[in-house]
């Protein structure tokens, strides 16, 4: 495993920790999209179907368990925790997430590397992950007072896929026969969706002001 890949995984892990920290310490999920969190839980379930069938490494298995466990616990907190759920911006978080799920499933059935159940679910998870941030970005745009932890969470989540792209470029040049078009294009789309956010993130950082996306 190269350093770029490890940095990507760690950024992903830290993003989840930042979110859980916010939920756990200030007992608030204000500004966080439950739609996006539910999509991530679905992404991990469909992608990690191989968790018990293909052993890659202890690191790999542990990380999969962490991502599955944390994504479901975040959804649980937002839906059922008696204090946390009160801070959920239900009226603002109106993105219809099933409009993302169905097209991704159809696309995975049409464009995949191999027509098997596991492979299609894997491909579906890649397509869905690429667009799963959309409800969160819409909510961010609607929210007037976004707290810093929410902004850092979204930034880290975007940085993770950007680091993965660098990892793919590195692997392409260092490993023979390393070609994964579906993964690359979905990852690229996912990172491009963050383009606007990144732009305003750096602007707010440079000018030392609170990030707010223009309506």
């Amino acid at each position: 495993m190269n350093i770029l890949r490890l940095a990507g995984d760690m950024t992903h892990l830290i993003s989840v920790i930042v979110l859980l920290l916010k939920i756990h310490s200030i007992k608030s999920c204000a500004g966080i999209s439950l739609k996006t969190q539910e999509l991530y839980a679905l992404v991990f379930v469909s992608r990690y179907l191989n968790i018990f069938t293909d052993f890659i490494s202890l690191y790999n298995t542990i990380m999969k368990l962490i991502f599955l466990g944390t994504s479901f616990s975040i959804v649980w907190y937002m839906r059922y925790h008696k204090i946390v759920r009160r801070s959920y911006d239900k009226d603002q978080d109106t993105f219809r997430h099933y409009f993302l799920v169905l097209p991704c499933l159809i696309l995975a059935l049409l464009i995949n590397e191999r027509f098997t159940f596991k492979e299609i679910m894997w491909t579906f998870s890649l397509y869905l992950e690429a667009v799963a941030i959309l409800p969160q970005l819409v909510l961010l745009q609607r929210t007037k007072n976004t707290d810093n932890l929410t902004v850092q969470y979204i930034f880290l989540l975007g940085a993770y896929r950007a680091l993965y792209i660098l990892n793919w470029i590195y692997r392409y040049f260092t490993e023979p026969d390393y070609l994964h078009w579906i993964t690359w294009i979905s990852g690229l789309v996912q990172t491009i969706l963050y383009g606007d956010f990144f732009y305003y993130y750096f602007l707010s950082w440079k000018n030392n002001v609170k990030l707010q996306l223009p309506a």
């Binding site: 999969k64 191999r114 993965y164």
Partner: peptide
């Protein structure tokens, strides 16, 4: 079968 080694990325 170059595509179908076990997926090693997360």
């Amino acid at each position: 079968e170059i595509f179908h080694e076990p997926k090693d990325e997360l």
